[in-house]
Simulated scan of single mutants.
Amino acid sequence: MDNHIKAPISREDAKSLHAGDYVYLTGVIYTARDAAHKRMKETLDRGEELPFDIKGNMIYYMGPSPAREGRPIGSAGPTTSSRMDKYTPLLLDMGMGGMIGKGKRSKEVIEAIVRNESVYFAAVGGAGALLSKCIKSSEVIAYEDLETEAIRRLEVENFPVVVVIDSEGNNLYETAIQHYRED
C-alpha cells in the first residue's frame, strides 16, 4: 500500500503505518550520522538544546556527496542505521517521529520505537543519485565543522521509503525472511 505522508510525521500517521508499507515523504527531514549523534548527546549532557526541535521530526542517516551544479545536493543514499543505535532510544524518548536508514536495529531501538509509537523507514541503498532528485533544498544547520556529517535540513518531495519497523514492533526484515521460507 502506498502512503503519502507529510514530514514532520504526526503520531497518528506513524501509528497508521505497517511494516512493508511504501511511503512517499514530503516536507522537512534532517540528516545526522555518527559524529552528529555524538555531538547531540554531548549537547544534551550539558543541558543545552538540540539545534532543531526533535519532536515529530525524522532523522535521515545520510552522508551526502557534494552537490553538482544546479542541484541542492549530490548523491544522498542511506547509511547503516545500527551505528546510531546507542543514541536513538534517547532521541525517540524525546519525541523523535522516525528515522530513515538501512539495516537492522537493536532490541533497545525497537523497544523505543514501540514505546514512543514511532517508525523506522528504509531508503534503498545504492540509489543515492535517484533519491537526491527528491531533495528540493539542503541547508547545513549545525556542526558545519563535521562537513558531510553536519546536520542538514532537507526539504523533500515524494521521497520514497519503506516501513521496516512499525509502531507495534512489526519488523519487515524478520517477516520477509519468514515469508520467503514459507514459499
Rank of each mutant, 00 (worst) to 15 (best):
S106P: 04
Q178P: 03
A7M: 07
Y60F: 15
R153V: 02
I141K: 05
V161G: 10
I73C: 06
K136L: 15
G126N: 08
A67Q: 09
V23A: 11
M40F: 02
T26K: 00
I165H: 01
N116P: 04
E157F: 08
G103F: 01
N116Q: 09
P64W: 12
N3L: 11
E49P: 03
A112T: 07
V162N: 02
N116V: 03
V161K: 06
A129C: 02
C134E: 07
E108I: 01
P72R: 09
E139G: 09
A76C: 15
P160H: 08
G27F: 00
A112M: 07
E69P: 11
G47Y: 07
P66Y: 10
E182Y: 03
A36I: 03
E147C: 10
D166A: 03
E48T: 05
N158I: 04
V162K: 09
R11S: 14
R33Q: 11
I54E: 05
I54S: 12
A14Y: 01
R68A: 11
A142L: 14
S16N: 07
I9A: 01
A19I: 13
M58F: 01
P160N: 12
G128A: 08
K133V: 05
L92E: 09
A19S: 15
E147S: 13
A19W: 08
I110P: 05
K102D: 03
V163M: 09
I151F: 02
S82M: 04
V119F: 04
E117M: 08
L17H: 03
R11M: 14
L25P: 04
G77S: 14
M99A: 04
Y173C: 08
E174N: 08
L146C: 09
Y180L: 15
H4P: 03
V114P: 07
V140K: 13
L172H: 01
M58V: 15
G98A: 02
R33P: 00
A123P: 10
S75T: 14
V28W: 00
K41L: 10
K102F: 06
G70F: 11
G128T: 10
D21N: 15
G125R: 07
P66G: 09
N3K: 15
D13P: 07
M1N: 15
G128E: 12
I177A: 15
M96Q: 11
A122T: 05
Y30P: 03
S82C: 07
